[in-house]
């Protein structure tokens, strides 16, 4: 079975985000970019399925700017077999919406015919939490979101999902879309020998037009602002004073 893993290039999760002064968005110029952490977990899971003999080829896909090639190299260095880069914009500040991404991915799925698509549950930039579900709808495939355990057995997969109030286990028919949550696994580091091997793995470059998908946004960004700051509070000297203040505030 072939596994397809879409990965997104996003601002590194350790970088402090700065809103641009003109309110047009978040400043991404000269900022360290990395693979979306949830997508890294998806790549890791695909590799583990391959190591367990349940997947025989892993194809990583990224859709966005040309620089996303580096993100794909990371996926290849971790253990993906080949990569497809779909250049959909030249502007590093442009975010391709999940709907357009899902349409491009659908076209790629039609071509590649994978048995499983593993993706991150959300990207840490737009926090939309939608691509996997949308792709699943467009393909008419089964979907299992927020996975914390993935168990593929022949024509079905048992997925444990993190839902409000606990965990839910469902069984989905293959082919399926699985979106992964934080605790599914700990992604491996790309070792230097594997980084060198990754250089020789194939990376195809395509454009959104190759798939006939219009990527123009449905949502227009009106403005982007810093969140409202909370007013500074006070420091209390003792537990007694804390209780007194809480009573005054009517909180207890």
């Amino acid at each position: 079975m072939k596994a397809l893993v879409p990965v997104k290039r996003v601002i590194d999760y350790n970088v402090k985000v700065r809103v641009k002064a003109d309110g047009s968005g978040v400043d991404l110029a000269n900022v360290k970019m990395s693979m979306n952490p949830f997508d890294e977990i998806a790549v890791e899971e695909a590799i583990r399925l391959k190591e367990a003999g349940k997947v025989d080829e892993i194809v990583a896909v990224s859709i966005g700017v040309k620089q996303a090639q580096e993100t794909l190299r990371t996926a290849l260095a971790m253990g993906a077999d080949r990569a497809i880069l779909v250049v959909a914009t030249d502007d590093v500040h442009a975010d391709i919406e999940p709907l357009a991404v899902a349409k491009i991915l659908k076209a790629i799925v039609d071509e590649e015919q994978p048995g499983l698509v593993l993706c991150g549950k959300q990207a840490i930039d737009n926090d939309m939490n939608a691509t996997g579900q949308m792709l699943s709808a467009l393909l008419g495939w089964s979907q299992a979101t927020f996975a914390s355990e993935v168990d593929v057995e022949g024509n079905s997969a048992k997925i444990t999902r993190e839902v409000d109030g606990g965990l839910q286990t469902i069984s989905v028919k293959m082919p399926a879309i699985v979106t992964v949550d934080l605790r599914l696994n700990e992604p491996r580091y790309a070792s230097l020998p594997n980084i060198m091997k990754a250089k020789k793995k194939p990376l195809d470059e395509k454009s959104a037009a190759d798939y006939g998908v219009d990527v123009s946004p449905r949502l227009e960004v009106v403005k982007t602002e810093e969140p409202a700051q909370r007013a500074a509070g006070i420091t209390v000297g003792s537990v007694d004073e804390l209780i007194e203040k809480l009573k005054e505030a009517g909180a207890v």
């Binding site: 999940p98 939309m128 699943s136 927020f146 449905r218």
Partner: peptide, 23 residues
Amino acid sequence: ATTDAKNILPRVAALLDVMIISD
């Protein structure tokens, strides 16, 4: 915006060919 709705509504949006606005 519960985990249930986040599971279902993006799927609905794609079926209707519209974007989702989450959270």
